[in-house]
Simulated assay, not measured.
Amino acid sequence: MPIDAAKAVAAEPRTAEITWGHKDVQLYHLGLGAGTPATDPGELRYTLESRLQVLPSFATVAGAGAAMMGGLAAPGIDVDLAHVLHGGQTIELHRPIPVEGTARTTARVAAVYDKTKAAVIVLRTEVADADGPLWTSDAQIFVRGEGGFGGQRGPSARPETPTRAPDHTVDRPVREDQALLYRLSGDWNPLHADPEFAKLAGFDRPILHGLCSYGMTLKAVVDTLLDGDASRVTRYATRFTGIVFPGETLRIRMWREPDRVRVTVVAPERDEAPVLADTVIDHR
């Protein structure tokens, strides 16, 4: 059987050391569209080393994001990567991410759920430096055709989208070259750059990384509702529901609640096709 859930969950965690510096952070922010206008004091918090802060979503690329792919090679996991989709992402911040750092990652399969026609693998990465825990990241990996092994279905409860009008709606343009720049932070999947590969995968042209939409959305919320202070974010969770093509727009709707922002993201050029759903940002 391609997935042995019990074996995967019981496997020893994989550990590795990662390092990053201000250039990695600046490149990541630029890949999210930061720096426009280039001299805007709000944008300099993402681009200028003397004022630099770190968006919590940087956790998904720190160390070139190697922990997630390593998790798919865990004992008990033997899947065709062509059938793998990133279904959701959650990051819990234990404290703000420093601009420069060296840390130890511990990655394991936290759960495997049986959705009958597919499996969902939860890859958990815990990261700590010499001062203690930094963040915990859960990637929900959807594997088509690998369900039906008799496992638990997993949690089904989802955050409710408020029925009232959003408190804020902002549009964030996706540049034509955005995926080409974002991939320099470590996701080299040709789906996001090679037109021929994209066609083989069923798309007319390369698509934007889901985690790029994820980071762009967090930046928009931080800038709009959190006074531009990324250190206020304590948790960020989303479910990926659709694709984005470079050159399109992210329409980000925000509902403010006590210590929480609920968010939806759509692509207005394609009849508001869903991009991110069940999105929650908790903050101080």
Rank of each mutant, 00 (worst) to 15 (best):
M1T: 12
A5H: 06
K7P: 09
A8C: 13
V9T: 14
A11M: 12
E12Q: 15
T15C: 04
T15D: 05
Q26W: 01
Q26P: 00
L30A: 08
E43H: 07
R51Q: 13
L52F: 04
Q53S: 13
V54L: 07
T60P: 07
T60Q: 06
A62Y: 01
A64L: 14
A66F: 07
A67G: 02
M68L: 13
M68G: 02
L72T: 03
L72Q: 04
L72N: 03
A74C: 10
P75A: 01
D78A: 15
D80F: 08
D80E: 13
A82Y: 09
L85E: 05
L85D: 05
Q89L: 00
I91N: 01
G101Y: 09
R104E: 13
T105H: 01
A111M: 09
V112S: 05
D114S: 04
K115C: 03
A118Q: 09
A118Y: 10
A118M: 14
V120G: 06
I121V: 15
T125W: 00
A128P: 01
D129A: 08
A130T: 14
D131E: 15
T136N: 02
T136L: 03
D138S: 01
D138Y: 00
A139Y: 00
F142Q: 08
F142V: 06
G147E: 12
G151R: 02
R153D: 08
G154R: 06
G154T: 09
P155A: 14
P155R: 11
P162M: 09
P162C: 07
P162F: 07
T163Y: 03
D167L: 11
H168W: 08
Q178H: 08
Q178S: 13
A179Y: 04
L180M: 13
Y182Q: 06
R183T: 05
G186Q: 04
W188C: 11
H192P: 09
E196I: 06
F197H: 15
F197N: 09
A198Y: 10
G202K: 11
D204E: 15
R205S: 14
C212W: 00
S213Q: 04
Y214V: 00
Y214P: 04
V221Q: 04
V221H: 04
V222C: 07
D227L: 12
D229T: 12
A230K: 12
S231Q: 12
T234I: 06
Y236K: 00
Y236R: 00
A237N: 06
T238W: 01
F240E: 03
F245V: 14
P246C: 09
G247C: 11
T249Y: 10
T249I: 13
L250R: 07
L250D: 02
L250F: 04
R253H: 08
R256I: 05
D259Y: 01
D259S: 10
V263L: 06
V266I: 08
A267I: 12
R270C: 03
V275R: 10
V275T: 10
A277K: 09
A277P: 00
D278H: 13
D278I: 08
V280T: 11
V280R: 14
V280N: 05
I281V: 15
I281W: 03
I281D: 01
H283Q: 08
